[in-house]
């Protein structure tokens, strides 16, 4: 196969520079005054603190923050909103999950400065003033132990159910894969999905006898 590269014929380097109107790049390390002047032109802020305003749980929060402050740290350390937890701090575990414009994201891997002008919802406000039905279902199904992963999990679960009203097992495996629990509460979370989607939970929730358990078992047994 051909590996020859083609350059769009109708756009030369000179044309491009003309279009862009910028003949040189904005230097990275120059005198402060020069940086300031060119920086303002290109909208450069930082590295010092800059005023940042976030809309969280329907309220406005403002602080002067360095651009490197993550949304999670802004919420927790500056606005004392501690429902989102910092566990891995690398977008691996989901304990920091919040909704931004109704979509679940990792707040540890989002800069606060990027999250301005968006609607941010944390576990504390998932159901507005009252706990969300998903959160009550977490209690009903004892889908928590130490509880550190739980707030993030409830946010992810609510978002999952918005997309999969009748979450099947395979959908749960993928759709809630972004959250990890160390105590091992996943079985209860399966119960949450089953309850919220109107299905009977499998396994032995609510049963005590061996016969009852066998009757609800998907595998083997009877």
């Amino acid at each position: 196969m051909s590996t020859k590269e083609k350059e769009p014929a109708n756009l030369s380097r000179r044309d491009f520079l003309k279009i862009s109107g910028i003949a040189a790049s904005v230097p990275l390390v120059v005198s402060p005054t020069a940086t300031e002047a060119q920086g303002q032109q290109a909208g450069i802020v930082g590295p010092g603190a800059v005023p940042i305003t976030l809309t969280v749980n329907g309220k406005s929060f403002s602080a002067d923050l360095e651009p490197r402050v993550t949304l999670l740290d802004a919420l927790r350390e500056h606005f004392d909103i501690t429902g989102p937890k910092r566990v891995c701090d690398r977008g691996e575990c989901g304990a920091c999950t919040v909704l931004i414009d109704d979509r679940p994201v990792y707040s540890c891997t989002t800069l606060a400065i990027e999250a301005q002008e968006r609607q941010i919802i944390t576990a504390e406000h998932l159901g507005g003033a009252q706990p969300h039905a998903v959160q009550s279902a977490y209690v009903n199904n004892d889908a928590q132990q130490c509880g550190l992963c739980t707030p993030g999990f409830t946010v992810a679960t609510k978002a999952f159910l918005d997309k999969h009203a009748h979450g099947a097992d395979a959908e749960i495996a993928h759709g809630l894969a972004g959250n990890l629990c160390r105590c091992g509460t996943y079985r209860g979370i399966h119960g949450v999905i089953a309850q919220m989607s109107g299905r009977e939970p499998k396994g032995n929730a609510g049963t005590t006898t061996i016969a009852e358990r066998l009757a609800t078992s998907a595998e083997g047994g009877a």
Partner: peptide, 23 residues
């Protein structure tokens, strides 16, 4: 009995405070 975890809702709703949350 299966009486329900008494601190369940505080944890599920993100209001339960941990050492890390003390500011």
């Amino acid at each position: 009995s299966r009486m329900g975890r008494v601190d369940g809702l505080a944890k599920a709703s993100g209001h339960a405070k941990y050492t890390y949350d003390y500011n």
